[in-house]
């Protein structure tokens, strides 16, 4: 039986037969369906995925006309992380003129709202200058990052220390107190950047510290939207389901813990977000086929129920992309094309 070049979730090369690839596609999709209580992929969708995984071509793309908006988050720090020492406005110009970005984001190297707060007025002139010199829509963005509000980084007792000691109530109270401060910081920074002229505010990797982190993001979105009705807010998630670190927090009467993408997007809508960025995590021990079918199953369910545009996250280790600093072109192009072809999405 013919063997096809394939990769695992960590990017390692393997050889697989078409039958093995198909079995992994079905298993990955059914895993997502089972977890999210959503439909698995249909036969023609499996067939399409099998076709692209068995294709001898290094690069796969969408059909003309099916292209989507490409949103870059944190690129002004990513370019410096790889040792290219350009300033941030130059970075934005490189991305808009050379990298094919449809939107960009100005971000501080300490990519969280809390550290930006005391230097926000130094960030504003850079944003204002960038807005004079660039053409494409420009977000200002950072992570909510609730973890920064607990000891030793912040004033509140550390729930990650309290919880394993069985101090559940104390941990929950700490989360509740911390999220109030986080909301204030997001609204403070978001307001200044919007008043400087940002085209949008990005709340990136929401829920990284669990349900309290996600709740703070939603409340901050609601407050910014009430303050500036025309503001564009993008909420990008940290993981495929909301970790129940507190577990009892609700928004609009719905328990946040355990929500998957198709449920999260309804919360983002209710808060007034303009764009939602759902996530599906890559399992490094499973094949690319398993991961991509699984990711598409989650994103498809989200896209079908969303009333606002969705931009699934397709960076390293999410959306079927392998966990590796340099994700291979073969697997990224297949993930990119398949996600865009099979899901009702509005951007990446």
């Amino acid at each position: 039986m013919d063997q096809f070049f394939h990769r695992m979730g960590d990017g390692s090369a393997v050889q697989m037969t078409a039958k093995q690839i198909m079995a992994d596609l079905v298993e990955g999709s059914e895993d997502a369906a089972d977890r999210g209580k959503i439909p698995p992929l249909a036969k023609e969708e499996y067939d399409y995925l099998l076709d692209i995984f068995c294709s001898p071509h290094k690069f796969i793309s969408v059909e003309p006309g099916r292209e989507v908006i490409l949103t870059y988050d944190a690129a002004t720090l990513k370019i410096r992380r790889v040792g290219v020492h350009v300033d941030r406005i130059q970075a934005l110009q490189i991305y808009e003129k050379i990298m094919g970005a449809d939107t960009m984001e100005l971000a501080h190297v300490d990519y969280s709202y809390k550290p930006v707060k005391p230097i926000a007025t130094f960030e504003q002139p850079i944003l204002e200058q960038a807005l004079l010199a660039t053409h494409i829509p420009l977000f200002y963005g950072a992570q909510p990052n609730l973890g920064l509000y607990s000891q030793p980084d912040g004033p509140f007792p550390n729930p990650s220390e309290l919880m394993p000691m069985g101090k559940i109530k104390e941990a929950q109270e700490s989360y509740e107190a911390a999220l109030e401060d986080l909301v204030k910081d997001i609204v403070f920074v978001g307001s200044l950047m919007y008043e400087s002229g940002a085209d949008g505010i990005n709340l990136d990797t929401a829920g990284a510290a669990g349900d309290a982190d996600f709740l703070a993001t939603l409340i901050a979105t609601e407050k910014l939207k009430a303050k500036y009705p025309d503001i564009c807010i993008e909420i990008g998630m940290a993981g495929e389901f909301v970790l129940g670190m507190h577990s009892q927090l609700t928004y609009k009467g719905e328990r946040l813990a355990g929500m998957y993408a198709h449920q999260q997007v309804k919360m983002a809508e209710a808060a007034g977000a303009t764009i939602f960025g759902p996530v599906s995590n890559t399992n490094t021990s499973k094949s690319a086929a398993w991961n991509l079918a699984r990711a598409i199953t989650f994103m498809k369910a989200c896209g079908e129920i969303a009333n606002i545009p969705i931009h699934p996250n397709m960076g390293m280790g999410v959306g079927g992309v392998t966990v590796n600093d340099q994700p291979p072109v073969d697997v990224v192009s297949r993930s990119s094309a398949a996600m865009t072809t099979l899901c009702r999405l509005d951007g990446l």
């Binding site: 989507v68 908006i69 094919g100 990446l348």
Partner: peptide
């Protein structure tokens, strides 16, 4: 990776 997305499915 960014370039790959831009070519595979981005508007441009």
């Amino acid at each position: 990776m960014a370039i790959t997305h831009a070519h595979a499915s981005g508007m441009g």
